[in-house]
Amino acid sequence: MGHLELQHTLTGHKGRVWGADWHPKNNALATCGEDKTIRLWSQEGNRWITKTILSDSHTRTIRDISWSPCGQFLASASFDATTAIWDRKSGQFECNATLEGHENEVKSVAWSRSGSLLSTCSRDKSVWIWEVAGEDEFECAAVLNAHTQDVKKVTWHPNEDILASASYDNTIKMYKEDPADNDWMCVSTLTGHTSTVWSISFDATGNRLASCSDDRTIKIWQSYLPGNVEGIATPDGDAVWKCVCTISGHHTRSIYDISWCPHTGLIATACGDDIVRIFKEAENSTKIAPVFEIVTAQHGAHSQDVNTVKWCPSTPGLLLSTSDDGEAKIWKYES
């Protein structure tokens, strides 16, 4: 059994803190929320302090933010239907591009592993892929209308240009570019959750995906490539995803976010019951029948719903959480 130790509490936002992202390299992170601002934080000595507040770019809640893999750009998705791209070419962070096209709230934004593609999704049911075309220029490469409802989350495969999205229509979808005509298309639909899928996270290999839902369960999905030893048919030559594990009985309200640590393999969840939970793969776990055990449940991690959990990409065991209580917290997992 492990436990979470609270390292820092980041206060400053007014109202809900919806999103957060660690800087890919430095001891820095960004948070965003209901107050329509983005706060950039960095560690100085043993303290985390607000270095910059970015405001005046969005007119409604900022739901999600994402650092580019190089750490030079920050993308923010807002309920005002736009996505803003920030950079510090002038020395200070400035918004130098605004991506328009969604009909209403943008819910999530994510950069691909190379940083050359950006994806956004919206209540308008669509998923957009943008190509970085040059200095402050983004071209729409695809508008994917595979979901039948509100799309809550987009995330890229860690090693390939494969995109995954989660929706209010209870499904997860995967997309890739058809090499024949460069058109993006939906290549798989993962069904099994019985209510909104709020978030998804790949493991380090990209062969497994964890999802969390309003149905209060986590599901682990395994990809089977053509020619797999298990003999799972792959009709179109694409990977087939199957649910190999459902974790239920732990969460007592909707699960808003999930993060799979690329270093430790631990899975963290953010739940509407104010608890941050950590799950670990058990010793007797196998590829086709994985077993996950809960290793800690941080009761009262926040005083209201937990909205985001994110493992630190550079320091194993460091976890960031945000909440409706207006705070972000940094935790250290100790086994």
């Binding site: 409604r60 309920f79 709230e105 209540r123 509100d150 509407g272 719903d305």
Partner: peptide, 12 residues
């Protein structure tokens, strides 16, 4: 029921 209990939809 799904719509009126979705906190993101409510906030928006």
């Amino acid at each position: 029921n799904k719509q009126i209990n979705d906190k993101e939809r409510i906030a928006a």
